[in-house]
Design a protein around this nucleic acid. Structure first.
Lengths: 158, 158
DNA sequence: TATTGTTATACTCTATAACTATA
DNA sequence: TATAGTTATAGAGTATAACAATA
């Protein structure tokens, strides 16, 4: 829907607000919604969804991260994490090993298949992201992400 | 979690990426999640949630907008819209009136209570938004919203 | 007592398919 | 035939409460 002249450079965006911008909540919801559906479609060939890929990243990131810690990082409850890891285990992406130091905890380790999926997913995630942001300049893309990152860090501190 | 020096001005954000930024999907999900929970808490005294407020805005925005049209604008299915309008009607926020020109359609009109709620909600939404973005300068806040808006418009065009 | 993982359960938001009444 | 609203239903994602094992 539109033969309207596209905004040429995103750097000019904030200079004049000809039409009032939608509210932040609307923008965040729609952006997240659209991005997730694209990411899901792009990751589908790997047999995983965006959440599973995010979990793979976390479990690979720092060894010895417990389920609960990864859950917190992903912003989901630890009870939700259980089913997620269950499914990843069923798919042969990870293994659960009781922590020798604290046997209440699980070490969730990536299998070779998990590591391969993580690597392939990284490429797909990068492509999805740059495709999604392709109307923005490289600088504006970085600005957008940096701004969101700063806001989140501030929010986390309460 | 942090006694680290906070980034002073958000305008400096993109200049140097000392630590690699999280991926876009993560940033969008967390930002949306955090914002919605704040908005929900702030709107709770009015007896409505973020979705209902967004719907109020749409129904007030342009008179004669059908349920299906508003649903599309909100990014939800028209079947989902039914229950949403049901609840808003139960709360006395809106009325359904058959369209005289096309009786398949409903005119969803705001009641006096709906208009009052809309007005109060607007104040709350503005406060929530500026509070959420308070670590960003006014300019960077506008930049963030403008960037998201441009991306969404591009995505909508497919 | 507190914490990790777990289970059972339920709630919210969402969509698909099929119906109805109009057009 | 096609569309707007509706209903019934199911799925995904989520959380709360309670339990076992461990600390």
């Amino acid at each position: 829907m539109s033969s309207e002249p596209r905004v040429g450079s995103a750097s000019e965006l904030p200079l004049r607000d000809q039409a009032p911008l939608p509210r932040l909540g609307y923008l965040l919801k729609q952006a997240h919604l659209r991005f997730v559906e694209r990411a899901a479609a792009a990751l589908a060939p790997l047999g995983i969804g965006p959440r599973e890929w995010a979990a793979l990243v976390c479990f690979d990131d720092e060894h010895g991260l417990s389920q609960a810690q990864v859950a917190q990082r992903l912003g989901i409850d630890r009870t939700t994490m259980v089913a997620l890891v269950d499914e990843m285990q069923t798919k042969g992406l990870v293994t659960r090993q009781p922590d020798s130091a604290d046997r209440r905890k699980n070490h969730v380790k990536l299998t070779p298949h998990g590591r391969q999926t993580l690597k392939r997913g990284a490429t797909i995630a990068d492509e999805t992201e740059s495709d999604f942001l392709n109307v923005l300049s490289q600088e504006d893309s970085e600005r957008l992400k940096a701004a969101l990152n700063v806001v989140l860090q501030a929010v986390d501190e309460d």
